[in-house]
Design a protein around this nucleic acid. Structure first.
Lengths: 245, 245
DNA sequence: CGGACTCTTGACATCTCTCAAGTATAGTGG
DNA sequence: CCACTATACTTGAGAGATGTCAAGAGTCCG
């Protein structure tokens, strides 16, 4: 059951028949409860759960019963259009909270990019604890505000930035979020594949590849293997993002 | 001072030199205080302020001292890239709250699309009132959650939808928000111009015009004048958005 | 009536996507 | 452990959608 269930998804109809969308909804429940920094008040409400790569944590349209904290691994928040086009709205990495939005149904799906461990909270419980606990409330509110800011930046990127600007933004964002800064040269371990990057940036996988290859040829990055990128020259990336080249 | 100060903005450098970006930061302050539905607790903190068309209500980068409630008129929330490209993240219409994000500086600028009246609150006061007033807190949180949902939909639109899908989405959204439903035929009064629509949808003004003309030729809409659109066939618009044509 | 905007349309250029093939990598079974 | 297969990534060539540039039409206001 913990085995990797990828690659057997339904096939999107129409244009994108190649993509193996995951359809598995699963989760291996451990009965443990984790102890945690600011979310102390949530202790009792949390259950640790695991998901295999490409498993669905929750589906767009499902009743939003749970909220999650990501303990390890990476998750994509995405929406699938009827004809198979996909947009990833956010990536969640270690420590991120997700599914806390106060809506009846999830508006997006959450899928495990790698094998993933999360702590799962029952939202109704979160709500009542929140009502009494100012610290938790402030933390969740702060989180929400940061998320809104991040989505708004993403919006500008999708609406107005060129391919190279998007890729440069993405790389900078990953360097910051994975804070992989080690001795000047920065190496990032990308949990997501090229298709995920493309769907996050509103591009096709081929366009992402080409842009990365261009950056590689220009010496801005090195790509020891698909999931690792060495950023040699983050300055230039910044220049590309807000100066344009 | 209440006069229309449009059309004299700085000229964006480079590609978009034609666009007259507004640079005016203004505001006519009346000392009045408005009474209001759920925001009763905020009464004392509010001051009514007016802005002329194309005046700036707050600027990206400014210290975020105030939050606002729009009483009348329309506002755009936007970001300007260094070379003049612009992305509009949201439109605010009657009754909308904005500027409540818990950040030190505004990340986007807010500009009056039409002449505008707002109630202005000092954010530090809002914060302390919020701490004591559960109803206000819930209302603001709810608003924030809705906004995040809306931005995420916008994200999908910019990342993955075609021109016609975007325009159709936009029209549907406007019909809903301006609820202009009168006797089957729905007439919307758009406060914003074509360039604003383009910058909201991540398109050029020409592309917006062409798509509207196509819809007009197809009989889906009628355009009695630039700022009014009659939606004859909202069904088809829905089909275009999620079926694609 | 004239000038300034704003909107619309056309012709053409360009960027990104599509389609197709080839290479690399990882997991699987002999 | 290796060969095989499935998957993921990369690259090229050509197509198509949207952007750019330019001109003309419509509207508003003095």
């Amino acid at each position: 059951m913990t085995t990797n269930l990828a690659h057997n998804g339904t096939t999107a109809r129409g244009a994108l028949a190649k993509r193996p969308w995951p359809v598995i909804v699963g989760g291996i429940v451990a009965r443990n409860i984790q102890t945690d920094d600011e979310l102390a008040a949530l202790h009792h409400a949390g259950t640790t759960v695991s998901f295999g790569r490409n498993e669905t944590i929750f589906n767009e349209g499902d009743t939003a019963k749970y909220a999650y904290k990501l303990v390890s691994g990476a998750v994509r928040l995405c929406k699938l259009l009827p004809d198979g086009r996909r947009q990833i709205a956010d990536f969640y990495l270690d420590g991120d909270l997700f599914g806390f939005l106060d809506l009846d149904d999830y508006a997006f799906s959450a899928e495990a990019i790698t094998n993933v461990t999360v702590v799962r909270y029952v939202r109704s419980q979160v709500r009542s604890i929140e009502e009494e606990d100012g610290a938790l409330r402030r933390k969740l509110t702060k989180m929400l505000h940061q998320r809104l800011s991040r989505v708004q930046s993403h919006l500008v990127m999708l609406g107005r930035q060129t391919v190279k600007e998007r890729i440069a933004s993405f790389l900078i964002q990953m360097v910051e979020r994975l804070d992989a800064d080690t001795l000047g040269k920065t190496c990032i371990d990308l949990p997501m594949g090229r298709q995920d990057i493309a769907d996050y940036l509103g591009l096709t996988i081929e366009t992402v590849c080409r842009a990365l290859s261009d950056f590689k040829r220009a010496g801005i990055i090195a790509v020891p293997n698909t999931h690792q990128i060495v950023v040699n020259d983050i300055e230039t990336l910044h220049t590309i993002v807000d100066g344009d080249i």
